[in-house]
Amino acid sequence: MEKTIDTTVEAVKISDSEWEVMRVLWTLGQADAQQIADILGQTMDWKLATVKTLLGRLVKKDAVRTEPCGKKYIYFPTVGEEATMKSATENLFAHICAKKVGMTIADLVQEAELTAADIAMIQEALSEKTPAAVIHCNCVPGQCECREHQTTSSNMKS
Score class of each variant (00 low, 15 high):
Lys99Met: 11
Met22Gly: 03
Glu67Ser: 11
Asp32Gly: 09
Val64Tyr: 04
Lys52Cys: 08
Thr89Asn: 09
Ala37Arg: 08
Val21Ala: 07
Arg65Asn: 09
Leu54Ala: 05
Met22Gln: 04
Ala63Phe: 04
Lys60Val: 10
Lys52Trp: 00
Thr50Tyr: 05
Pro77Trp: 08
Glu20Met: 13
Asp45Arg: 06
Ile96Glu: 11
Glu81Lys: 15
Gly41His: 05
Thr78Glu: 14
Arg65Trp: 01
Ser87Asn: 14
Pro77Ser: 07
Leu28Thr: 02
Asp32Ile: 00
Asp38Met: 03
Phe76Cys: 06
Val59Trp: 02
Asp62Ile: 00
Trp46Cys: 05
Gln42Lys: 14
Met44Cys: 01
Glu81Met: 14
Phe93Glu: 05
Thr50His: 07
Tyr73Ala: 14
His95Gly: 13
Cys97Tyr: 05
Gly29Tyr: 02
Ala33Pro: 06
Cys97Arg: 07
Thr84His: 03
Gly80Pro: 04
Val79Ile: 15
Pro68Cys: 01
Lys61Phe: 03
Ala49His: 03
Lys99Leu: 06
Thr27Gln: 11
Leu54Trp: 10
Arg57Val: 00
Val51Gly: 01
Gly80Ser: 12
Thr53Glu: 11
Met85Cys: 09
Tyr73Thr: 05
Val21Ile: 13
Thr43Glu: 09
Thr66Gln: 13
Cys69Gln: 15
Glu82Cys: 01
Glu90Ala: 14
Glu18Phe: 11
Gly29Phe: 01
Lys52Val: 10
Ala33Lys: 09
Gln42Phe: 03
Thr89Leu: 15
Cys69Val: 11
His95Asp: 10
Thr50Asn: 10
Arg57His: 12
Ala31Asn: 01
Glu67Leu: 13
Glu90Ile: 10
Val64Arg: 02
Gly70His: 03
Glu90Cys: 07
Lys86Glu: 14
Ala63Arg: 07
Lys99Ser: 01
Leu54Cys: 01
Cys97Asp: 12
Met22Trp: 05
Lys47Gln: 14
Arg23Cys: 10
Lys61Gly: 02
Thr50Gln: 07
Val24Ala: 04
Pro77Lys: 07
Ser87Trp: 15
Gly70Trp: 04
Ile39Gly: 00
Glu81Val: 05
Arg65Ile: 06
Arg57Met: 06
Ile39Val: 07
Ile74Tyr: 07
Leu48His: 13
Gly41Lys: 01
Glu81Tyr: 13
Arg57Gly: 14
Lys71Ala: 11
Gly29Asn: 02
His95Ser: 12
Ala94Asn: 15
Gln42Ser: 06
Gly80Thr: 03
Lys60Pro: 01
Lys99Gly: 01
Lys99Glu: 10
Arg57Cys: 03
Arg23Pro: 00
Glu90Asn: 10
Ala83Tyr: 01
Val101Met: 13
Val79Leu: 06
Leu58Phe: 08
Thr43Met: 04
Ala31Phe: 02
Ala31Ile: 00
Val51Arg: 02
Asn91Pro: 00
Ile36Gly: 03
Ala49Cys: 00
Pro68Ser: 12
Ala98Thr: 08
Asp62Thr: 08
Gln30Phe: 10
Leu28Glu: 09
Phe76Asp: 05
Ala98Gly: 11
Thr50Glu: 08
Glu82Lys: 14
Gly80Gln: 04
Lys47Met: 07
